[in-house]
């Protein structure tokens, strides 16, 4: 157990014991190799199960709206920004959440490891950081991969990886290897295409969508009581998972979360049919930044992006 983990467990226990929070939302070991799973509890004994490792991939802030009372939540950099964003959107009061910040060293993308090794995750024996390399053990043999090759794209372009809004910070601010250009390489490929090619690309991606709505359900920025996709009068999109409607659903979802999406990457990770949703969310982040110099969840006093305006704003596209 790492020192960070130890500290986290005792702090979490203490918070529950002293009644400073009603719930702890963190991660515990999952039931599959290299998996973790959300731990949502009000029982202080459960805090002994809390973990921090390179596989804590859920954005836990999605649960904040569900638990009653005050919640103590384990937050990485992107999660902390999601929490701030929820506060900006008045989905959450700052005093109802106790943010246990954990500076993040980056999440290992198991899909990338699978690609690099040609094996599925359950066939790999061990994955561990070895300095700035990931050591992967398979049947006794060890291979090392540079961090850049195994970190998730979101982590490669994460900024900042350490939470800026917190009540308690646990652990050292780790050196996260970032490489923004590498992290957006899929986007670059898309940008180099003609509109027609791009459309064909997304058409083929969304032909696979089964409309499980996991992307929406795991997203902290998708907090509507009733999503437009479920409205029936009028029905904006068909409930049948046709590529056309799947594409409209995702395009509109991305527009809805503009300025609130922190690029946690959770939607892409959740998608069972591997649609590169992050190539949409990341691009949206760039558009928002370029046009309005706005970054989601960086200032809890700032009005939400779409609720604000400046009289002077780019309007070169308006006749």
């Amino acid at each position: 157990m790492s020192e960070t983990e130890q500290k986290l467990r005792s702090e979490a226990r203490d918070l529950l014991e002293k009644g400073r929070v009603n719930h702890i939302i963190g991660y515990e070991a999952g039931s599959l190799k290299f998996s973790t799973t959300p731990l949502i509890t009000s029982d202080k004994e459960d805090t002994d199960r809390l973990v921090i490792n390179p596989f804590i991939n859920n954005n836990l802030s999605v649960f904040l709206g569900e638990v009653g009372g005050k919640a103590g939540i384990v937050a990485r950099g992107c999660d902390a920004r999601s929490i701030v964003s929820l506060i900006q959107d008045k989905q959450l009061a700052r005093e109802d959440v106790f943010i246990i910040g954990v500076p993040c060293g980056g999440i290992i993308d198991l899909d990338k490891v699978e690609k690099l090794t040609g094996l599925d995750r359950d066939e790999i024996d061990d994955i561990a950081w070895q300095g700035d390399k990931a050591a992967v053990t398979i049947g006794g043999a060890r291979k090392e991969f540079p961090a850049k090759e195994v970190l998730t794209d979101d982590c490669l372009s994460c900024e900042p990886p350490d939470p800026r809004e917190y009540d308690l910070l646990i652990g050292e601010v780790g050196p996260l290897v970032t490489d923004g250009e590498l992290g957006r390489s899929k986007i670059k490929e898309l940008e180099a295409m003609t509109p027609e090619q791009r459309w064909e690309f997304w058409k083929s991606e969304f032909s696979r969508c089964i409309r499980c709505y996991a992307c929406r359900q795991v997203c902290p920025a998708c907090f509507c009581n009733r999503c437009f996709s479920e409205e029936t009068e009028p029905a904006w999109i068909s409930p049948l998972p046709r590529w056309q409607d799947n594409l409209v659903f995702q395009a509109i979802r991305m527009i809805h979360v503009a300025g609130r999406c922190t690029n946690c990457g959770e939607c892409e990770r959740a998608c069972p049919v591997n649609i590169p949703l992050r190539s949409l969310s990341k691009k949206m982040e760039e558009i928002v930044d370029e046009l309005f110099h706005y970054r989601a969840g960086t200032d809890k006093e700032a009005p939400p992006l779409m609720a604000a305006y400046q009289p002077e704003e780019a309007e070169d596209f308006i006749r």
Partner: peptide, 13 residues
């Protein structure tokens, strides 16, 4: 059920 996010994955698949 606390950690379930009510998506369609486990049933669709």
């Amino acid at each position: 059920s606390a950690k379930c996010v009510s998506c369609g994955i486990c049933t669709f698949l």
